[in-house]
């Protein structure tokens, strides 16, 4: 193995076992690409080029086959985000119930723009498309968990609580 390959991040043995079992469930190992990328993002925080190269090797795919999937799907991130990723749905149902005001409030109170992360690395604010939970508008996804009927007070309380915990999720 070359020095470069040695430097690549690696899945744990437990993960590799999980991936082997996953591959067995499909007619072709390529079908495991999206689930394996989800695992990689969970394990390494984001999908750096090194992580994508490692995923390609793990599934015996060309790097380009991985790249085109990573760049196509919005949930896959090529850059790190804050400890708390605050994704506000601003599509129709949420928009009609105050989502734009909520985004403005978050950006103002955290002093960042949409897509940015606070200097302390704690919070990233993003706008997302319809979360499929419109009865709970406006919806905020915080690190993959749905928080429904959110307003400025709820979010302020969440942020204060998160700051108090000092970055522990």
């Amino acid at each position: 193995m070359s020095a470069v390959e040695n430097a690549l991040p690696q899945f744990s043995e437990v993960r590799l076992e999980e991936i082997r079992a996953l591959i067995a469930r499909y007619p072709h190992p390529r079908s495991a690409l999206l689930p394996v990328l989800h695992m990689a993002q969970e394990d390494f925080g984001y999908l750096s080029m090194d992580v994508q190269t490692m995923v390609a090797k793990t599934l015996d795919l060309h790097l380009m086959a991985v790249r085109e999937v990573v760049t196509f799907y919005t949930m896959f991130r090529e850059k790190p985000c804050g400890t708390y990723l605050l994704e506000v749905c601003t599509n129709a149902g949420c928009m009609l119930n105050g989502a734009d005001d909520l985004v403005r409030h978050l950006c103002d109170s955290l002093d960042i723009k949409v897509g940015q992360t606070t200097d302390d690395g704690m919070f990233t604010v993003a706008e997302v498309e319809c979360a499929g939970a419109c009865a709970g508008a406006p919806v905020v996804q915080i690190n993959n968990a749905y928080h429904e009927k959110m307003d400025a007070a709820h979010m302020d309380a969440f942020i204060a609580d998160a700051r108090e915990k000092g970055g522990e999720k």
Partner: peptide
Amino acid sequence: AGAYICGEETALIESIEG
């Protein structure tokens, strides 16, 4: 992984093929 178009049945098939 976050793509509205994958609700279209042939896009869904492409997606589950990785």
